[in-house]
Amino acid sequence: MIGPAGLDGRPERDYSGPRVRGLPLTSEEYRAQVIVGALFAVTMVAGFALLVVYLVGGDTQVQGILLTLAFGGLGAGIVVWSQRLLPTRLVTEDRHPLQPEPTAEALATADATREAEAGFARRHLLIGLLFGAFAGLGAALLIPVLSLGPAPGRSLFVTAWRKGSRVVGIDGKPVQASALPIDGVVTVFPEGAVGDAMAQTLLIRVPPDLLRLPADRMAWAPDGYVAYSKVCTHAGCPVGLYRAIEHRLICPCHQSTFDVLDGAIPSFGPAARPLPQLPIQLQPDGTFVALGGFPEPVGPSFWNMTSGGGA
């Protein structure tokens, strides 16, 4: 069924009759043909030009433009063709019900199926056992899944820092206290674990009289040298920004802000707990060693962090 003519309001022209070669074109058709032809020519030229540019080692921009012209000419030509040279008359198609009325034959088949199903549906015990079998298979499928990674174990609770670990810089050499000016900050690692994601630590030097650490942790920060985990307690990004005037560490990812003088307590942003402080000791030769590992897990929180399990 062809819909009423001019349904879409476009000027009407009958395209349905037999087209004879050599039939005179209307001027609009002629113009459209010229446009489409020109657009296809653009594609032709741009395609070959692209090949030439590529062969002489041309740059990304020129290739991008030529590729655009190549595809654009073709696309625009086809669209103009469809709009100007093809019938745009709207037609109507009936919608059929999505669920047709069942035929007598289908009903008969369904009855037969029901009969056949009886041999299955009545066996309740077997069906129960079948589900049990699937559950067993499901459990067996856990085997490859559990092989995908190691058990987390204690890995989230401990880092490479040990009692007596020498504090070294990114170059692996021990950090000299004298090399760090007041308000200076340097990224440090335990000797032997340079670059370790979990052990990364910031050594910051602040004026000693400004430090307001809990009493039992004052000794962990000799002469105003204080060391905090560099792993943000929010989402684990390296806490890479230090605003020396305010003595604040800022995580560039989500702007969690930690007060260095107050024991790296979060003062703004999404982080919920302080950066763990590393106990360090100044050696007679002007280098540092750790008095132990971090007292609590570094990095983002996890559910059994406080219960200390380690599944």
Partner: peptide, 10 residues
Amino acid sequence: VGLFFLTVAV
């Protein structure tokens, strides 16, 4: 088809 080539072009 025309829209496909135009999408690729953009």
